[in-house]
């Protein structure tokens, strides 16, 4: 009985410590890379904002699977009792979406693309823990990158 409680509290503490650290580190890296990749606009409109005559187009995508820590999952399960905003999951999904967009942009950059349009998102929960709690989510972002044809200006 006591042992179970100790294990639970240890997991909670580990989750809180490492989870917070991982999240802060991830946000720092996201913000830094977002600044770097700011020159590639990613837009959700259906049609290309520039005339596509001098461009080739290609499908680009980026995906990430990211997991919530033990502490936050516990906090979220408490939250479901009283209702309201579940901030633990909000930051998880925010991180996952921004990371997926960044990876998509990196994919576009590696192919020489300079703008991405018609972006679509796809989110799914991959791992179901005990009592069907969400363990980790996958976010996929995909779109069409315009790549300037060689020789064109």
């Amino acid at each position: 009985m006591y042992l179970e409680l100790i294990i639970f509290l240890t997991l909670l503490a580990f989750g809180y410590g490492f989870g917070r650290y991982a999240e802060k580190k991830h946000y720092r890296s996201i913000i830094a890379r977002e600044k770097e990749l700011n020159n590639i606009p990613a837009i959700a409109t259906k049609h290309a904002p520039v005339s596509g005559q001098q461009h080739d187009s290609n499908l680009v995508m980026g995906s990430v699977v990211i997991s919530i820590d033990y502490f936050k999952r516990f906090a979220a399960s408490l939250r479901t009792l009283i209702g309201g905003r579940v901030t633990s999951y909000e930051t998880l999904l925010d991180r996952a979406r921004r990371e997926a967009i960044l990876r998509m942009k990196e994919d576009a950059l590696s192919q020489g693309g300079d703008i991405i349009f018609n972006i679509k998102f796809e989110t799914s929960s991959i791992f179901k823990g005990k009592k069907n709690t969400v363990g980790s989510v996958e976010v996929l972002a995909y779109g069409t990158a315009l790549i300037l044809k060689q020789g064109a200006h």
């Binding site: 991982a22 995906s63 699977v65 997991s67 033990y70 991959i126 363990g135």
Partner: peptide
């Protein structure tokens, strides 16, 4: 993955697998 479920963070193995 179950370890990462405690600590949080990216599951690189899964990302690759799904890709």
């Amino acid at each position: 993955a179950s370890l990462k479920n405690i600590f949080g963070g990216e599951l690189k193995g899964y990302t690759e697998l799904l890709q």
